[in-house]
Simulated assay, not measured.
Amino acid sequence: MTPSARLQAAIELLDEIIVAARDNGASADNLIKKFFKARRYAGSKDRRAVRELVYAVIRRFGERPQNGRAAMAGLAEEQPELQELFDGTTYGPAALTENEARTDGGSLPTWLESRFATPIDAPEREALLNRASLDVRLNPRAGSAADIVNFWPEAEKLPLPGAFRLESGTNVDASDPGRKGLVEIQDMGSQAIVAACLPTRPKLMLDMCAGAGGKTLGLAAQLPDDTRIIASDTDRGRLSRIEPRLRRSGNQNVETILLSPKFEMEALAALEGQCDLVLIDAPCSGTGTWRRNPELRWRMTPERLSRTTELQARLLEIASDIVKPGGRLVYAVCSLLDEEGGDQTDRFLEKQPNWRIIEVDLPIGRSYRKGILLSPYQDGTDGFYFTCLEKL
């Protein structure tokens, strides 16, 4: 592919990504894979160049562009070398005209700027779009920290037990430690949430929004074998991904429950008043994961955020019925917006006076709004808010 053809391919991909973001469709990564599956003629250098162009646009503009051409024209205003590729050749984009639309604006959605937690200032927000690190978690059932260092001598030891940072691009899944279940890829922020759950030694615990089971596996690796751990989620596809990971990890004490949206309590009724610990890693705006998924800025709208916060509040109510007296609830969001973090905690405690805040002692994070705030700038993690509550 010529440089102009690569630019045109990026524009076409951006058109698909913009529509998918608007309509809550497939992710950018999946659309890129599908795009090149239908274009076998594109070599590895072509695919890499097109992908870099696409993500340069996604990271640059916080507001969802009108279309791919306007977005790329906007990027070309700041990168003059791109303007020359609008050359009107057979496979390239038509020449730019003086009055055609060009995307502009900052890297943050304007409507979200006033909603961030107070400590998230300008440097913090800039860091939200930096490249993410590659963190792994040790599975102590499969080996020791020394085994990780022996295989990856360059591994950086992180402040949490069993947490390491590897060089970006390391193929963990294809490595011996990955295949043998010695390590799992997991951001240090997610590992901190697991650590916040561990001061208790529950006999019965529920990971209510388990997804593919990253935190479930983290807990299972450190809790006794006689702990009954239940992982539940409303997404069958995501929940099914925990099974091969469980087999690889060697854990035998995890079971799964598929929930129906809006009817979660029907499937969880047998657990009412029984759980020593419930973890809610709630669906959220994902503002704390923009460095991994920058297109989320194009997907979230005020209406979607409102629906998301309503869901979070409902999940907290369900959890309050499932936790037994003396049990604990850990509520977490990979968001740095107050309405998903501290505001949710305040509203819950106002409605549920039979709960109290539990202080969490961790080597990372800062106290904020009855919980802990983690951020890329301050902690080198994804952005999280979480709080630990005890039922009286």
Rank of each mutant, 00 (worst) to 15 (best):
M1E: 05
A5C: 14
A9P: 00
A38W: 01
K45I: 11
L53S: 02
R59I: 06
R64S: 15
R69F: 11
A70F: 08
A71H: 05
A71E: 09
E77K: 10
E84C: 00
F86S: 03
G105M: 08
G106Q: 06
S107F: 07
W111Q: 03
S114R: 08
T118G: 06
P123N: 04
E124W: 10
L129I: 06
W152K: 05
A155L: 07
L158S: 02
P159E: 00
G169H: 07
A174P: 08
A174F: 07
A174G: 15
S175I: 11
G178E: 08
I185P: 10
V194T: 13
P202W: 02
K215W: 12
T227S: 15
R228W: 08
I230R: 07
I230T: 13
L239D: 06
S240C: 03
R241L: 13
R247C: 04
E255H: 14
K262P: 04
A270V: 11
I280V: 13
R291M: 12
E295K: 10
L296Y: 11
P302R: 02
L305S: 05
K324A: 03
V330E: 06
L337G: 05
E339S: 07
D343Y: 01
F348E: 10
F348Y: 03
W355H: 04
D361S: 05
I364K: 00
I364W: 00
G371A: 04
I372C: 07
P376G: 10
G380H: 04
G380N: 05
T381V: 09
Y385N: 10
F386W: 13
L389K: 11
